[in-house]
Nucleic acid binder design. Structure first.
Lengths: 345, 345
DNA sequence: TAGGGCCTGGACAACGTTGTCAGATGCGGG
DNA sequence: CCCGCATCTGACAACGTTGTCCAGGCCCTA
């Protein structure tokens, strides 16, 4: 008898539906809906009966059906590089807080710095009809998103700009921060300054390199090839790069580390040196003040970045923000000792 | 004309549906469904036409409708304390990886250590019909979940056991780890050892305290009241607690820090002391090896914790795991110097 | 050439909810 | 006493997809 699927054999375990609640309470389906959604137009007595049935059956509204009907999911997606990175934890958390304030849930995904995986994730989120997306892009071509944006998915890029499409973007001032950090080293007498950063195809890495070069040029210091190392990211290769520039033909007396992962490794390498080498890192690190010397950093505030982006996202959803904008947040130089060491040849 | 809602005015922006694709490709609705889902029984020629229409319209399947029909959402929820905490980042990431391997997305939520907020989040996730839940509980009463579990929501608790209900749970050996850490201090000659930990209503905190007490008792050392500080969590109060036990009537020569946040503050306090005080912390900390002295810790592997829990979750969903189990993962003592300092009175 | 089996394609219902609209009920006023 | 109005309730369609089932066309064989 294929036509009598017993409620109790339904595929959701045996989750009661509004229909079941209605039957038990002896009211119509819509009345249950009204009670569940707190709409008015229900007598206290009826409401009580319905509530009783709800509790008795353990009814919980099926949001999938609701979404299908209403068109809004009250959820947003966040695609970032790696949730395990201490930079993204606070960012994610602040996005979540804003979402929560707007009654939305957060779906999280890590792209692992892989453009294909980013796209796969983003499209999966679109298929779930998230109301909006906060994206820390891994790839540099986001034309695949244009259709989605036109279809009404609010979108904000954070930390790095979108590629080949214009959309809201919230960035740190990577160029200015790096320039100031390097200028700080120059002000303390350094001229041979090394730079170790990530692949230049990553916007932040490129900008920070540009900042380094600008500071050097401003000071009239020609940069030697052996002083810069790009695209280096795993600890082993960072180590080698640092060691190389420390004992090259014209060894550096200071290093600018392009991100927190690089900083950590460089700190380890410098700790092994007899010569005192100055260091400024991009991104703050927990306990940086307890190292010897304390680590001087160019700090960006991940949670402000996240909050700003999320607020912008909900601004788009309100309809109050239409024109894509580029917001750039300032960085802050925090001196703790390592960046103030004098050159030691 | 309420009866002619133009497709182009639909509430999803103007997202095409399978019907639109079917119309454009000149085929039936179900044929489109077949193509989209890679089912067989479609001629290459037909498939080409459908695919063309899909691309032209920018069709993307609406997963809400799919979920409604199929009953599985291919998404799981993770409720943790605070995504910004460096302990939870890697945990979350490893849960995500397992989910990804099973084709599921991850919805993340922070309870902020608030039981009500935990419940609110969990129920919201249930309303979305997540297939499963990984929960780091904030509250100590989870009977509200029993109905959901019966309704088929796979559930695994991590880091702390569920309250008043039995369910799968994956823990670190908090008791054993703390006991070993304290025993380590005792082995290095300490007798007056302090303990600073979180509120004992938090299972991990209680277990670690129990480990501390067990180690002391095993060594026949009576514990003085002034040596333990419980329920202390914000930096300022941890600082005061540490300072108090360092200069009390019988000042401690070593401290056991109950979690990473406590450790960080205690490290700061100890750095200000002239007397050398030993320290062992629960949870590893990045750069712990670069401090002076290096921080000795009882380490638990957050990503293994997360992975184990997530695998267990999908085990439940496969139907291969039925009986709730309690899995306890060992901790590891990592000696780096701070825990090997001799007592200095 | 007719019949049978196989394969492709499409009509239709169902998933659980919400919006629309009309019916029922009760009350007060003319 | 009856009508009109306000208030409350319920029937029904629709959201976009997938599962079921049947029709029609093709090829192969006798």
């Amino acid at each position: 008898m294929p036509d009598t699927p017993r409620r109790s054999e339904s595929r959701y375990g045996n989750r009661p539906t509004m229909k079941d609640v209605a039957a038990r309470a002896g009211v119509g389906l819509k009345t249950v809906s009204r009670v569940v959604n707190g709409e008015q137009g229900v007598t206290p007595e009826t409401e009580r009966r319905v509530q009783e049935a709800i509790d008795a059956l353990g009814f919980r509204r099926n949001d999938s059906a609701r979404v299908l009907r209403k068109g809004r999911t009250a959820s947003i997606g966040l695609v970032l590089e790696d949730l395990a990175d201490p930079f993204y934890g606070p960012l994610s958390r602040s996005v979540e807080e804003v979402a929560r304030a707007h009654g939305a849930l957060l779906i999280n995904g890590s792209s692992a710095e892989d453009p294909d995986r980013e796209q796969e994730l983003v499209l999966a989120l679109c298929a779930r009809r998230v109301d909006g997306l906060v994206i820390i892009p891994a790839g540099d071509d986001h034309r695949y998103l244009e259709q989605e944006i036109r279809a009404g998915v609010a979108t904000v890029f954070v930390d790095r700009p979108a590629g080949k499409t214009d959309a809201d973007v919230v960035l740190s001032d990577n160029f200015g921060g790096a320039r100031d950090g390097v200028a700080h080293l120059i002000a303390h007498g350094h001229r041979r300054i090394g730079f170790i950063g990530d692949m230049p195809r990553i916007h932040t890495a490129a900008e920070r390199l540009r900042g380094y070069l600008a500071a050097m040029e401003d000071a009239g210091i020609p940069v030697e090839d052996s002083w810069t190392s790009l695209g280096v990211t795993d600890p082993l290769r960072v180590r080698r790069a640092a060691e190389d520039m420390l004992r090259g033909p014209s060894p550096v007396t200071a290093v600018f580390a392009g991100n927190n992962r690089v900083s950590v490794t460089v700190i380890r390498v410098l700790a092994e040196q007899t010569r005192r080498v100055a260091l400024v890192g991009f991104d703050d690190i927990e306990l940086a003040d307890l190292l010897h010397p304390g680590l001087t950093v160019v700090a960006q505030d991940a949670s402000v970045l996240g909050r700003t982006a999320a607020e912008r996202l909900f601004g788009q959803l309100d309809g109050s923000l239409i024109v894509p904008e580029r917001i750039e947040l300032p960085t802050r130089l925090i001196t703790r000792g390592s960046g103030e060491l004098p050159p030691a040849d």
